[in-house]
């Protein structure tokens, strides 16, 4: 006797489909320039992030990578240039608004609430998705309670996904660094992001933690179809993880393409090896 088994292989998606096809432009930055007083942090940079890809931004120290992330998530507003997210040109927006629009991020030096538990920290990631007003949540009955349960379910799925059940109730400040990084990723995921920005997700990690984190990043991308832009210094990790890489140096774009193209780009080699000009 032989039967055909129907495997349920549909991918889970976090955010309701936003109508943008995989591989189409999710975010486009055009001719962006940013300066602080006389210091030019970013000069005339353009690149795009396509839906469903892992996009790396690399460059030596001070190249403007973090500034670029801050521009994308609305923390800085560039003097020149335009940002188009999901087909809409962005006007001057605050970071909280871009968060609501579906851009979530983690930070280079962990920015968690140290006294709060892992669970509570990740729950804060859901705040932008809260539908009921503060008053309802203060009463915590009826609709607010139901909403809370929904959010908690979403958070528990993330805890399961990141394999951090054992630290669910542990205050984050007591956790080792590698786990804190994982909690921070959890909080960013909790916002159901269309675009996830990761600022040096593997800084300060040992080899095993890096391997774990790489696996989680790939799983997020594959399982949930989340588009990811990441800054990372570990070239091995960058080349293995990302679909396309953009290279910055002194605030300018010096390379853009697949890992192989970038690896063989003479300008990039110069910037990294420090060839005298």
């Amino acid at each position: 006797m032989n039967v055909h088994l129907q495997e349920d292989l549909s991918k889970h998606t976090l955010r309701a489909d936003d109508g943008i096809a995989k591989g189409a432009d999710l975010l486009k930055v055009e001719n962006i320039s940013l300066s602080f007083g006389g210091v030019k942090a970013i000069t005339d940079i353009s690149f795009d992030i396509k839906k469903g890809e892992i996009r790396a931004i690399i460059g030596p120290n001070g190249a403007g990578k973090t500034s670029m992330l801050n521009v994308i998530n609305g923390f800085y507003f560039p003097q020149q240039g335009t940002i188009t997210f999901r087909g809409e040109k962005r006007r001057r927006a605050r970071a909280s608004e871009t968060a609501r629009d579906g851009i979530a991020r983690t930070f280079q030096n962990i920015a968690l609430f140290k006294g709060m538990s892992t669970l509570d920290n990740i729950m804060t990631g859901r705040i932008t998705l809260q539908k009921r007003s503060l008053l309802w949540h203060a009463l915590w009955k009826g609709p607010a309670e139901r909403e809370e349960i929904e959010h908690r379910e979403a958070v528990e799925r993330i805890i399961d996904f990141l394999e951090i059940e054992h630290i669910r109730k542990t205050p984050v400040g007591r956790l080792p660094y590698g786990l804190q990084k994982r909690v921070e990723l959890g909080r960013a995921l909790a916002a159901d992001p269309a675009l996830l920005l990761l600022d040096e997700p593997m800084a300060g990690m040992n080899l095993e933690e890096k391997a774990d984190m790489s696996r989680f990043i790939l799983d997020v991308n594959q399982q949930y179809g989340t588009t990811i832009a990441l800054i990372e210094h570990d070239m091995g990790v960058v080349m293995d993880l990302s679909d396309r890489v953009v290279v910055l140096d002194y605030g300018k774009k010096i390379g853009d393409g697949t890992p192989d193209e970038v690896r063989n780009n003479p300008d990039v080699i110069d910037a990294y090896l420090g060839v005298p000009h």
């Binding site: 088994l5 129907q6 495997e7 349920d8 292989l9 991918k11 996904f161 799983d219 594959q222 399982q223």
Partner: peptide, 18 residues
């Protein structure tokens, strides 16, 4: 099933499906 999505499912089955 996590992570097994892209595996060849000729001789690999989930308990759910079974």
């Amino acid at each position: 099933g996590r992570g097994l999505h892209d595996y060849n499912h000729n001789n690999l089955h989930s308990i759910d499906a079974i």
